[in-house]
Design a protein around this nucleic acid. Structure first.
Ligand SMILES: Nc1ccn([C@H]2C[C@H](O)[C@@H](COP(=O)(O)OP(=O)(O)OP(=O)(O)O)O2)c(=O)n1
Ligand SMILES: [Mg+2]
Length: 897
DNA sequence: GCGGATCAC
DNA sequence: TATGGTGATCCGC
């Protein structure tokens, strides 16, 4: 069996290989959209109707394997029915040959390799392994089901084409044209007319222009977006003062109290509102906005990046302007039925499932929540269900046919659908013996104030549902009246679903996925995995080509393979997605874990310039740190070569730092190490970044002085144990191409505070700030011959001049400008470069001293690793609600003037 | 703990 | 004229 599958699969591969080679003559020009016609499928029937083979040919007509990661994502709202092939062809043509493209090809190859490894691995699984994996997966499913919480109503509000909408509002003439916001290098977003051409966020403007020649590109006006965002937030605050904004146009709200009764609610709202306003005001005053860093350089294109300080704590989804509202419903009793399903590896791929009612419990408010938790644990240990018959080991497996088509039916019927019966939750007390599993749908949920048995429950439920819809409509309407901008909303029992729902009726619409398990399962059944938060380009490709899963139900049906292929974390995440489960807790604030600044520029390949840029970044970062009263124990740099290869390096300082020079002293070492590593080739960069991590919430450090051992950690008070970590399914190829490091490392953390400071002072003085003659000249020297690109790192600094290239290898005296100490050094003999490196080493380690002042970083410590266990459940644990959050903080942005 | 990779927005 | 910025998580080593 296995062999058959393998055979089939291989054959497909071969066919594909054969196809993508011929027809290189295809005339590309036919693919260029020179007209103003949108690239919708129906207007290009000829292309669309081409046979599959033809399509493949077109995609590969460049005689190279298709680079699928460069394809347009049409998963976005407003992009249905586009002629993908044609659009992708244009994108490909515009990109081919660029360094960016070459790098994408390289990355695609790595992914492909990873996929092949997984496929190999999968082919080696034995039946026994699969059977066991199935059991393990089912056990997890059972636990997840037990934790399913339908008692919350989460609303996800998403502003429509936000930036574009704002621009159109302020210039109505744009409404009738396809337009986008951003610059010719990168677009932030586009209006819906432009989307008909395939133009979307994240696409370079010049390519968008090829897709849509008439595209109007408007530059961003973040101040406007921010201001309007505040107006929107004022409306949101009326429904939930604890709403959680995720970006300028996205946030989560909890309107439980609002729905519950207007009175108490109103009161609270009043208070809240004030607080919120203040908050907003404050942030606003700081002048920082969601992350955009607009380089106002004339030549520089504005790029959009909305997030700078978005703490992004939430793991739940967050797409655009969405607000999630959690509605507590007056739930009564809930019963959970569980079923155990065993898969028997039957020849026909059928799985046998046995159902069993396992647990019964009630939800309600927080109290019930706890109960639920208890049950969870119980459930976990309750594997008794083993009684279910185990597999009949006889079979031969592969219950999972690789051909999705044929298998789909059976699997759907036998597996995915069946799970419907698993762990269902019903409201009301009906009861239920094992059978009711299947029809449980009837009384779902919450809302009803009715208690058991109440017939009127249904009517009340309807009323509740209507109320929810109306409330959300009202909220959207208020936003529109106030801002003249439309918003879309998704309402569901958890964040994951709410997000998907908000996209459903996207432009100016809303969708309510009611808190009933069967409805959720129906909703999720055909849901493309790519729509799930955390599943992006790569994950989708892996799931598609390895597991042959495109939808949630297909993913569920391959849960046994998942167990064998991916990490436990990833599996749990995938299972949750496939079951339509997600976080129901809007846990708000997680403290920020890092702060960084990075920028792209025209190639920089000379050490002095590298350092100057680095210093600049450190200065920026220092300002941000100060603005937030933070210090960092970990300092890192990020480098991206002109070939788009990215490198990151970090060091842990012996004490937290904040000042520019302190940051720079660490960053510089890392940078110099890299420069030396690439030597004798110059380090040719297109981007540089500096990052601060292991942050300490300290008051401003006295310029230069003692960081008193401040016990910043009052952290105890607020137990934030929650934080859900969303996606766990990202696998990493991991380090692999770490070139031959040159062991230059400096002993990190061995420097005493005094030494580090002194060191930094010295270095900074000499290298950047200072007017040191020899160096200052360097920095002001703008016109560096481009022919120097091929020179060595530490090229002679003009003293002896000459082509620095040769200078290094020559015997004649050569002068270098040491990037560390800033001094000019002349070497006469032998290998000047070697000597220079030696000098740099000495220079770098010179100040290192064993003594250390330890600052207990205690505080931050672990907060990260929350086991997946703790995640989700523990929902509302009350605390949350009262805990003060600082949601606005995540929107504070770096606003470079 | 580090560095690469992936993802969101 | 030529593909962004910020923050986070996961995983293999
Ligand atoms: N690669 C990306 C994608 C998005 N964003 C930012 C800019 C967008 O304005 C914002 C929201 O992203 P969406 O994809 O949700 O786009 P819109 O809100 O503009 O459109 P819509 O929600 O109608 O689909 O996030 C970004 O900076 N970089
Ligand atoms: Mg949006």
């Amino acid at each position: 069996m296995a062999s058959n599958e393998e055979f089939d699969f291989l054959s497909d591969e071969e066919n594909f290989e054969n196809d993508w080679k011929f027809d290189e003559n295809d005339d590309i020009s036919t693919y260029i959209n020179s007209s103003t016609t949108p690239l919708s499928a129906d207007t290009n029937k000829e292309v669309v109707n081409l046979g599959k083979a033809m399509t493949i040919v077109a995609e590969n007509n460049s005689n190279e394997r298709k680079v699928s990661r460069m394809d347009l994502n049409t998963t976005k709202a407003g992009m249905d029915g586009l002629d993908k092939d044609k659009i992708n062809q244009i994108i490909l043509e515009a990109s081919k040959g660029s360094k960016f493209y070459e790098n994408e090809k390289k990355r695609e190859k790595q992914v492909q390799k990873r996929i092949e490894e997984l496929q190999r691995k999968m082919a080696s699984f034995t039946n026994e392994q699969k059977v066991k994996a199935k059991q393990a997966a089912d056990k997890i499913v059972q636990e997840l089901e037990q934790g399913r919480d339908l008692s919350r109503t989460i609303v996800h509000v998403d502003m429509d084409a936000y930036y574009a909408a704002v621009e159109m509002r302020d210039d109505p003439s744009l409404k009738s044209k396809p337009m986008a916001v951003g610059g010719s290098a990168m677009l932030c977003t586009s209006n819906y007319l432009a989307r008909r051409y395939g133009v979307r966020a994240g696409m370079p403007g010049f390519i968008a222009k090829k897709l849509c020649p008439n595209l109007t590109i408007v530059r961003t006006n973040f101040d406007k977006y921010t201001k309007i965002s505040h107006e929107i937030r004022e409306v949101l605050a009326e429904y939930d003062r604890n709403f959680l904004p995720m970006s300028l146009d996205e946030a989560y709200l909890d309107i439980t109290d609002y729905l519950r009764g207007n009175e108490g609610q109103n009161k609270r709202m009043g208070e809240v509102k004030e607080e919120e306003s203040k908050d907003i005001e404050g942030k606003h005053d700081t002048g920082k906005i969601a992350g955009v860093k607009f380089e106002s350089t004339d030549t520089q294109e504005n790029v959009c990046a909305e997030t700078k300080e978005n703490d992004k704590t939430k793991t739940e989804n967050a797409k655009d302007a969405k607000f999630i509202v959690r509605v507590k419903q007056e739930t009564k009793l809930v019963e959970v039925k569980q079923e155990t399903s065993k898969i028997e590896a039957l020849p026909n791929h059928d799985f046998e499932v046995t159902k069993q009612v396992k647990v019964e419990r009630a939800f309600d408010d927080d109290v019930t929540k706890y109960k639920q938790n208890e049950k969870d644990s119980e459930g976990t240990h309750r594997p008794n269900r083993t009684e279910a018959q185990e597999t009949k080991g006889d079979i031969e497996l592969e219950p999972i046919p690789l051909k999705a088509e044929t298998a789909k039916h059976e699997l759907d019927e036998n597996s995915f659908n069946q799970q419907k019966g698993e762990g269902m939750i019903t409201v009301g007390q009906s009861e239920a013996q094992g059978e009711s599993d299947w029809d449980f749908g009837h009384g779902s949920s919450e809302n009803d104030t009715s208690f058991l048995h109440e017939e009127p429950a249904v009517a009340e439920q309807e009323m509740f549902y209507n109320k929810v819809e109306e409330v959300v409509k009202e909220m959207r309407r208020k936003i529109e009246v106030k801002t003249q901008l439309t918003a879309s909303a998704g309402i569901a029992p958890n964040m994951f679903l709410a997000k998907v729902c908000s996209d459903k009726n996207k432009p100016n619409g809303q969708f309510y996925l009611k808190p009933e398990r069967d409805k959720i399962m129906d909703f999720v059944r055909e849901l493309p995995l790519r729509k799930a938060f955390g599943i992006g380009r790569v994950s989708e490709q892996i799931l598609t080509s390895v597991l042959k899963a495109n939808t949630c139900s297909e993913l569920y049906d391959r849960r046994h393979l998942m167990q064998l292929l991916f990490t436990p974390n990833a599996c749990t995440n995938y299972l949750e997605i496939s079951l339509g489960l997600g976080s129901t807790v809007v846990d708000v604030d997680r403290e920020r874990k890092s702060m960084s600044t990075e920028t792209t520029f025209k190639e920089i390949n000379k050490p002095e310039e590298h350092l100057a840029k680095c210093h600049e970044l450190c200065q920026e970062l220092s300002e941000s740190l100060k603005a937030h009263r933070l210090t960092a124990r970990k300092i890192g740099i990020k480098l991206k070569t002109i070939n788009f290869e990215v490198k990151t390096r970090v060091v842990t300082a012996s004490f937290p730092v904040q000042q520019t020079e302190e940051l720079f002293s660490h960053a510089k070492k890392l940078l110099v190490n890299e420069i030396r590593s690439s030597s004798p080739e110059p380090l040719r960069l297109r981007l540089m970044g500096v990052r601060a991590a292991e942050l300490c919430e300290k008051g401003m450090v006295n310029e230069s002085k003692q960081p008193t051992i401040i016990s910043l950690m009052k952290k105890n008070g607020s137990v934030r144990e929650r934080s859900i970590s969303l996606n766990a399914s990202q696998a990493a190829e991991s380090s692999k191409a770490c070139g031959p490091e040159q062991e230059v490392s400096l002993e990190h953390g061995s420097m005493s505070r005094e030494d580090e400071v002194r060191h930094s002072e010295i270095c900074s003085d000499l290298t950047v700030l200072d007017d040191h003659p020899s160096t200052s000249k360097e920095y002001t020297n703008d016109h560096v011959p481009s022919d120097q690109l091929g020179c060595h790192n530490f090229h002679g600094n003009a003293k002896t001049e000459r082509s620095s290239n040769q200078a290094v290898s020559r015997e004649e005296p050569t002068t270098f400008n040491c990037p560390v100490c800033g001094r000019d050094l002349t070497f006469r003999s032998g290998n000047a470069l070697l000597q220079m490196n030696r000098h740099v080493d000495t220079c770098l380690s010179k100040q290192a001293v064993p003594g250390v002042l330890k600052y207990d970083s205690g505080q931050q410590t672990n907060k990260a690793k929350q086991s997946s266990k703790k995640r989700k459940r523990e929902s509302s644990k009350n605390t949350n609600r009262t805990v003060k959050r600082k949601p606005m903080d995540r929107f504070v942005t770096k606003h470079t003037k």
